[in-house]
Amino acid sequence: MTSQQQPKPRIAVVFGGRSSEHVISCATAGSVLATIDRAAYDVIPVGIATDGRWVLADGDPERLRIRSAEELPEVDGSGDLVSLNAVAGGAELVVSAAGAPPSVLGSVDVVFPLLHGPWGEDGTVQGLLEMAGVRYVGSGVLASAIGMDKAVTKVVLAGAGLPTVPSVVVTAHDWRADETDCRERIAALGYPVFVKPTRAGSSMGISKVRGPEELAAAIETAQAHDPKVLVEAFAAGAREIECGVLGALDGGVETTLPAEIKVGGDHEFYDFEAKYLPEESTTIDLPADLPDEVIARVREMSAQVFRAVGCEGLARVDFFLMPSGELLVNEINTMPGFTPTSMYPQMWAASGFDYPQLVERLIQLALARDTGLR
Rank of each mutant, 00 (worst) to 15 (best):
R63D: 12
G247R: 07
L162H: 04
K150S: 04
L246C: 13
S20R: 03
P9D: 15
L33S: 08
P61F: 10
Q357G: 01
G310R: 02
E268T: 10
K262D: 13
V46K: 04
M335F: 01
G205T: 01
S302C: 07
Q223G: 12
L105D: 06
P287W: 15
I186M: 06
G325W: 14
R210V: 06
A188E: 13
A222I: 12
G265Q: 02
A40I: 04
S351M: 07
L33H: 11
T153M: 09
I24A: 01
P356E: 05
K196Y: 03
G237E: 11
G159T: 03
D266K: 11
D109Y: 01
P9C: 15
I332A: 13
V111C: 06
E74A: 15
V298N: 11
R185C: 10
D80A: 15
G252N: 09
I48Q: 05
I146L: 13
L162R: 09
G123D: 00
V298R: 06
T50Y: 06
V108S: 03
P258Q: 13
T282D: 05
T50N: 11
G99F: 02
D292V: 14
R18T: 14
A303Q: 13
V359W: 03
R67Q: 14
A12M: 08
P45Y: 03
P113V: 01
R361L: 09
M148F: 12
T35E: 15
E21V: 01
L277P: 00
G244H: 05
V263C: 02
G352K: 00
F234G: 12
V55N: 07
A308G: 08
V298H: 06
A158G: 12
L314Q: 14
I206F: 04
V170H: 10
T28R: 00
D292F: 09
A177Q: 07
S25V: 00
A69F: 09
Y270G: 01
D174A: 10
G147C: 15
L286F: 05
E326L: 08
V108N: 02
G52F: 14
N333F: 06
Q357P: 00
D149L: 03
G106M: 09
S83R: 15
D271C: 01
P291D: 15
R53Y: 10
S139E: 03
A236H: 15
F269W: 05
D37I: 07
E280F: 02
V193C: 04
D60M: 12
I241N: 08
I206R: 02
S103K: 10
Q357E: 00
A315R: 09
S144A: 14
A236C: 08
P7E: 14
T255Y: 12
G99Y: 05
R299Q: 15
V305Y: 10
F194S: 04
A303F: 05
P287L: 12
G127W: 00
I186K: 03
P340M: 06
G140M: 04
V309C: 07
P345G: 04
Y41E: 05
F234K: 04
A315T: 10
P356K: 10
L129P: 08
V329H: 10
E300V: 08
E220Y: 06
D292S: 13
Y270T: 00
L105C: 08
P345S: 12
M343I: 13
A366K: 02
K208N: 09
A233S: 13
A177C: 06
R18K: 15
A145P: 03
S25C: 01
S3V: 05
